[in-house]
Amino acid sequence: MTQNTSGSVNISAKEPIAIIGIGCCFPGNANSPEAFWKLLRDGVDAIAEVPEDRWNLNNFYDPEGTKPDKIRTRWGGFVDKIDEFDAEFFGISPREASSMDPQQRLLLEVAWEALEDGGQVPENLASSKTGVFIGIYSSNYLNIQLSVSDRPLATY
């Protein structure tokens, strides 16, 4: 994609793209491209019952799905070690890290893994023609933090 002199974008232009690194974090302890491929190849079902250390499932589960603020499943895709975020490594205070969305913490870790996988030195990327493309879901953690209830903040 290029931009011409009039400021419009020319999407028909072809520019080379090189994927030089990858990082991932999937349920089923698939925390590398190789582990993810093995999970897929072996047909592993990475869906599991809500782990006890995540939340008390019985407080939120309604098998009929008719009660407000309840879930109707006991299962999900859960990633491991979300409580092992190294805030200091990323220059984040422990207090700030404890209020960050767990997905944001995982994003930082996986982006760093992709840089390492590609043999990239982050300091050398400033002002370079480098892009980072990210796939992520849901942003409901803020809603959980802001909701008025008797639930304590999750300490993932």
Rank of each mutant, 00 (worst) to 15 (best):
S138H: 04
N31H: 10
G131F: 10
P68F: 05
V148L: 05
P16L: 05
Q104Y: 12
T130G: 09
R54Y: 11
E84G: 12
V79Y: 06
E113P: 03
W37E: 01
P51D: 00
E88H: 11
A35Y: 00
G135E: 10
A46K: 01
C24G: 07
T155H: 07
F78M: 02
A97N: 03
Q103M: 14
Y137K: 08
I22Y: 00
T73I: 12
S128T: 10
K38N: 11
I92K: 15
S6T: 09
F89H: 12
D83W: 03
L115G: 07
N56F: 03
N31K: 07
P122F: 06
F89Q: 07
G65W: 07
E34N: 13
P152G: 10
E96P: 08
L108E: 03
D45W: 03
L39E: 00
S98M: 14
S149W: 02
A35W: 02
N10S: 05
P63D: 15
V9Y: 14
A35P: 04
N143I: 06
A154D: 06
R41S: 15
I20M: 05
D62W: 08
I134N: 05
I134R: 15
P63K: 02
I22V: 15
D83V: 03
F26G: 02
R74Y: 04
A13R: 08
G28C: 01
G76A: 00
L142V: 11
A46C: 10
F133N: 03
W37M: 01
V148C: 06
L146I: 14
